[in-house]
């Protein structure tokens, strides 16, 4: 498979209330092995997936939020977070986990995976994709 396609995982739903966020993440982890041009978009309630300090001990469900921090190790380094979606929910980047990756083209310098983008910028990035997986 020499063809490289642009895959975007579109996350618009909050975690725990439904299983979509968790099972979406499972696809991302498997998909990382396919050497495609992968990005993740978090918009609308999807931004809640990335909040820090998630503690699920009281609801008996697995806290899968630490997995987002491991995405860099899977070479998933483009994580788009929509600015307007954060603002509408009274959130800022400080409320989200700090996600990083090591850039192999830049002497393994640690870089931020999260790219804060406007709605308009995200719309253009979505437009460039070959495959949009929404859950």
């Amino acid at each position: 498979m020499s063809e490289i396609k642009k895959f975007m995982y579109v996350n618009r739903k909050a975690p725990y209330g439904t299983i979509y966020a968790l099972e979406s993440l499972e696809v991302v982890l498997i998909g990382a092995a396919f050497d495609q041009d992968v990005s993740l978009a978090f918009l609308d309630d999807g931004v809640y997936q990335l909040t820090k300090d998630q503690d699920t001990s009281g609801i008996g469900m697995k806290n899968f939020s630490p997995t987002y921090a491991a995405l860099g190790d899977y070479d998933v380094t483009k994580i788009y977070v929509e600015k307007e979606s954060l603002e509408e929910r009274g959130l800022s980047l400080d409320d989200l986990q700090h996600l990083t990756y090591e850039d192999e083209d830049d002497d393994w310098a640690e870089k931020d995976s999260i790219r804060l983008v406007s709605r308009e910028e995200l719309a253009r990035i979505m437009d460039e994709q070959d495959v949009l997986l929404s859950f």
Partner: peptide
Amino acid sequence: GLGQLIEAGIKADRLVVFG
């Protein structure tokens, strides 16, 4: 496995999601 979904995304001209 889930790889079958990714493979479909790569091989097919379009992917349509129903949910």
